[in-house]
Nucleic acid binder design. Structure first.
Lengths: 107, 107
DNA sequence: AAAATATACCTTGACAGACGAGGTATATTG
DNA sequence: CAATATACCTCGTCTGTCAAGGTATATTTT
């Protein structure tokens, strides 16, 4: 059983930011890590992931740089900014409150 | 602080079904009740509510009938069906699992 | 050596749900 | 008699997800 798009929606950016709190990473790796962390219950589709990266960069929550791979495909790394860290905390508060509120309604 | 549309998304139908488990009700009342239950943290906008009613009816999860008001505006009542009750239980399981999964990702 | 798979990036267009803005009608209150 | 509350509804816009497609390099399998 996997999480539906409509429930996932609104959490994508927070999930990415959370991941970048631990360490800089790149698209393909983030994708794999999220699946692994959740035993494949949650998969951010590539198109979803990349559109979220664009929004996060636009908002100044992440910045990017190319890795210096000498072998293999090039990697675009993402790094969380201070504004991103603040945004993450806000997202997290929203989530805690939303959980409470939705629980109130689904009795 | 109120819950964002994107987090709410995917829960609208479940929230309505949950409400109808208690008793038959009509749009305007459901709207007010939800706001009251959540101290105005969650408001289903009218357009959102009515489009959800259409989907739920289409799916056979609710059925409707007109109230027999002798005074005041007419009311269209909604009633949950057996299929609706089952769908609600499925929604609820999804929600419990989604909570767990998202919590895993937002550390 | 060729084919398949894995790693890694990306874009385009369709789709669905939330909602702002608008509309209708009746009853009550100031 | 105007304003507010109750009660219904539709249309069109916006936004995030994702299926489908593309590129390029490295490794593994046949």
């Amino acid at each position: 059983m996997s999480i539906t798009s409509d429930i996932l929606r609104g959490h994508t950016e927070a999930i990415i930011l959370s991941h970048l709190l631990e360490q800089d990473s790149y698209g393909y790796q983030i994708n794999k890590d999220i699946m692994k962390k959740t035993d494949n219950r949650c998969e951010l589709k590539e198109a979803t992931l990349y559109s979220a990266f664009r929004r996060l960069e636009q908002a100044g929550y992440i910045c990017t740089y190319w890795g210096d791979e000498t072998v293999g495909a090039r990697r675009r790394y993402y790094s969380i900014t201070d504004a991103g860290r603040e945004a993450y905390q806000a997202y997290k508060r929203d989530w805690e409150e939303a959980k409470f509120t939705i629980d109130q309604l689904l009795k």
